[in-house]
Computed example of a mutant assay.
Amino acid sequence: MSHTPQDTVVLPRRMKHLTVDRRGYPVIATVERSPREVNFGSINERRKLALATFDWCAVCGLPFANELRWQTVLEKGPLPSTVVSGEAPVHEVCALYAAQVCPYLFSSRSRLGDEARKGMVREGVVRFAGFEATSAVTVHESGLQPGVYTLHFEHRGQAEEFSYHEADEVRDRFAEALACEEELPVAGGEDVLVRLFNRVDDDGEGDVVTGAALAAGAAFAKDIFKLQGLNAFQGEHYPTVAGLLLRGTEQEIREFSAGARDEAFSAVGPWVLEHGGRFPVPLQRWRTRGESMVSRGRPHPPEGPGRSVAKNAPCPCGSGRKARRCHPAGTSPS
C-alpha cells in the first residue's frame, strides 16, 4: 500500500481539532467548505476576514499569541520594511507541515490548482518569512479581476526565514518546531468562535463568525462591504452592532450577548470584554476609524423581526439566507 504525505507527516498538536476530509487532509482555516465538499483550491475571503479580526492562523485557525506570523514571499534578496500579501499568515509549525503535505507546496513540480493560476507550476524555491506583527489588513481591488475585492495583509519586522526546493529539506526544522510547539489554549468567547469557525459539518457556519468579526469592529474597515462574498452582510445592521460593541457599557454588551439568538453573536461580546481594549492591531485600527463613524449618542442593539423568527427561517430582510446567518441579532425596525 502506498502512503501519501498526510499519512507520514506528524500532525502538529494545534491542528488536531481540524476536520479531516475523505482523502485524509486536515481542512485548513481559509478554504471553502460545506458538508458536501471541501475546495482546497478556493480561498474564502469571508474566512480571511475572521482570521484578520481575531488574529488567527490561516492553517489551524488558532490564535498567534506571541508567535511570529509566517508568510510566503516572492521577493528575492532582502525584504522591504513592509511586506504585503493577499494570503493570511500562519504559525511556523503549520507552515512547515503544509510545506510537506500541501500538493501545491511540497514539490517543485507541483501545479497550482485554482482557476486564476490553473496550469502554472510552483516556484522552484519556496521562501517563508516570519514577521513580528501584522500591522494592517486592507481591502484592495484585484489587478487580475476588475470588480473583485480581496483582503491584503501588511507585515512588519521580519525576524526569521526559511526556504526549500523539495519538502525533505524542511524535515529537521519541522522536527524542532514540533518539539518546541506550545499549547494555544483558548477560553471564553474565543473558544466558542474558534469551534464554530473550524466546523465543516454545518454549511456556512463560518459565515456566522464572519458576522461576529464585523460586529467586533471589522464593519468599520474601509470598503469592507466590497469584499468578495460580503454582499449578504451589507446594510446598517452590522455597523450598528459594531457601534454597540465599540461604545456600549459592559452591562449593555453583556445584555446584548445574552439576548442574541446566534451562538457566535453571543460569544463576540464576551470576546471584546475579555480583551479589555488590547485588540489585534488591524482590528484596533478599524475600531479607531469607527470612533469617528459612530454617533455620539448611546448605541442600541438592533430590534425587529430578525430576533423573533426561527433561526433556520428565511431572514426577514429578504436576502434569502437563513436568519441566524444573515441577521442573527435582528434587523433594525423601519
Rank of each mutant, 00 (worst) to 15 (best):
L112M: 12
L79V: 09
R46H: 06
V200K: 05
E183Q: 10
A136W: 06
A50E: 00
T288K: 15
P314M: 12
T134N: 02
D7L: 07
G157Y: 02
E176K: 12
S292Y: 10
E205I: 07
D203V: 11
L196Y: 11
L230P: 00
A218G: 11
V93A: 10
V90T: 06
N312P: 03
E169I: 10
F106V: 03
D203K: 13
V90W: 02
Q6K: 08
G61S: 00
G77Q: 09
T331M: 10
P305K: 15
A213K: 05
R247L: 12
G61M: 00
F54Q: 06
E92A: 13
G61F: 00
C180M: 12
N312T: 14
G229V: 03
V101N: 03
Y25T: 02
G217L: 05
G259D: 03
K118W: 09
G188C: 07
E67H: 11
W271E: 06
R199A: 10
P316V: 02
A177P: 10
G130D: 05
E154P: 01
S332D: 06
Q251H: 04
A267W: 11
E123W: 10
P89C: 05
R247K: 15
P282S: 04
A167H: 11
E115I: 09
R13P: 01
G235E: 07
K16L: 13
R23A: 13
V90A: 03
A95C: 14
A129G: 00
A187F: 06
Y238Q: 10
A50P: 04
Y25E: 02
A212D: 04
S334I: 00
N39I: 03
A116P: 01
S257M: 09
Q145G: 00
E263T: 04
A215D: 07
V59N: 05
Q158A: 02
V126L: 04
A29W: 00
G229A: 02
E45Q: 08
S107K: 09
C326H: 14
K16S: 15
A187Y: 07
